[in-house]
Simulated scan of single mutants.
Amino acid sequence: MKPKLSVLCITYNHEPFIRQCLDGFVMQKTNFPFQVLIHDDASTDGTADIIREYAKKYPDIIKPVLQKQNQFSRGINVDKAFNWPRISGEYVALCEGDDYWTDPHKLQKQVDFLDARPDYSVCFHPVRVVWADKSHPDSIFPTPKYRFNKTTLELSDLLKHNFIQTNSVVYRWALAGRESDYPDGILPGDWFMHLMHAATGKIGFLPDVMAVYRRHAGGIWWDYGRTDNWFLKCATKNMKFYAEQERMFGVNRTPEMTNLMRRTIAVFLRNHKFDEIVQIANEYPDVYQAATAATPACPDAESAAHWHHRFNYLLILTGVLIMTLLGMIIWG
């Protein structure tokens, strides 16, 4: 029988977590068939072996793609490229391999909700947030205030901030035949997918806490906005996310982009990433101008290029001086 719902799951080096994730899938009690489309991106630990074990035990549910070569590092959106084409049915749920579901009736409750309300396109619920290093106490997300004390929400609410945790959502899948509308190279990608679905119907909230979102050092949002490492890896993708929001939904993200640009420039300068400064200046010239006007110490694109060449020249000159001094020492 054709699945009514597809679960999308992406994994990479999730060996400590993946069993809990898979157990949350296979324990689901539903009156409809569903499948789990899981993609492992060439994990270097035991993740793929565990997935194989579950796929053998639950062949009607667990449908894996196990890569031999990492695809994300090649700039490929693995969900879009490898999971979306396999989607079957009306509904789609999300859960990455380091998170997990705790309620065996989660899918049934959300599908029942959407079945009864054809004008809704998104259903979500609160999750328990757990910090792996115990640096913070467990909490519930979102709080009532963060979701505007509403149980029915709309696109305009979701454009203010993201109150939908990834592993809590079920969509009435709206991207079949529209896959190319979803922009590549953006972060956070899940928020953008929430927005695209919220543009097609209402958002419904269920009060039950039915999943756990795990915060750990291997997660991409662990050091969000706090470390040079995050800015070097993620800032340009985050910038594109805001630009795509402006393009698709007609909102003004200049304040967010200007602040992000200012902080990104500071990190790039500190790490001598002069070419990257020139690149983002060329891609977002108005934002760059606003950011540098607010921070006079930051160079414009021409100055960044000049600094780059000057820096290289100084490196060469330093090398020459060191070699000269060594020659004087060796040869007297």
Rank of each mutant, 00 (worst) to 15 (best):
Y213M: 14
D208C: 14
L206D: 04
I220T: 10
K233W: 04
Y213N: 03
D223R: 09
E246T: 09
R247Q: 04
T236G: 02
M248N: 03
A211G: 15
M210H: 06
D228G: 08
Y213T: 05
N229A: 08
T227V: 11
V251R: 03
A211M: 12
R215K: 09
R214P: 01
L232I: 09
I220H: 08
A243P: 00
K233S: 09
F241N: 00
N238H: 15
D223Q: 09
F241I: 05
M210E: 08
G218T: 11
T227K: 05
M248R: 14
T227D: 09
Y213E: 10
Y213V: 10
G225C: 11
R226M: 15
R214Q: 12
E244C: 07
K240I: 01
A243Q: 14
W221T: 01
N229Y: 08
R214E: 08
W230Q: 13
E244M: 13
A211C: 11
H216L: 03
G225L: 09
F241C: 02
K240H: 09
L206K: 01
F231A: 07
W230M: 08
G218D: 00
R215N: 04
Y224P: 00
K240G: 11
T227M: 11
V209A: 03
F241R: 00
Q245M: 07
K240N: 09
I220P: 02
K237M: 13
V251C: 10
V251I: 08
R214V: 14
A217C: 11
L206P: 00
A235F: 02
E246V: 13
M210K: 02
D223V: 07
T236H: 03
H216T: 01
G219I: 01
W221M: 13
Y213L: 08
E246S: 12
M239W: 00
M248F: 09
M239E: 10
W230C: 10
L206T: 05
Y242T: 01
T227E: 10
K233M: 11
A211Y: 04
T236R: 01
N229V: 07
F249M: 00
F241H: 02
G225N: 06
T227W: 12
R247F: 06
M210A: 10
A235R: 00
D223M: 02
V209F: 15
M248P: 01
T227Q: 09
E244L: 14
K233E: 11
R247G: 02
E244V: 06
Y242D: 01
W221G: 00
W222A: 05
D223N: 11
Q245A: 02
P207E: 15
P207Y: 15
R215S: 10
I220N: 04
V212L: 03
M248Q: 15
A217V: 14
M210C: 07
R247P: 00
E244K: 06
Y224C: 06
L206C: 07
D208G: 07
A235G: 05
N238W: 04
G219W: 00
N229D: 12
F241P: 04
C234M: 11
R226N: 12
V251M: 13
E246G: 01
L232P: 01
W230S: 12
A243S: 15
G219T: 05
T236A: 05
P207C: 13
F205K: 00
R214Y: 03
K237P: 14
R226V: 08
T227C: 07
I220C: 02
L232W: 05
E244I: 06
V209C: 06
E244A: 03
V209G: 06
D208L: 15
V209N: 00
T227R: 05
D223K: 02
F241G: 04
A211F: 06
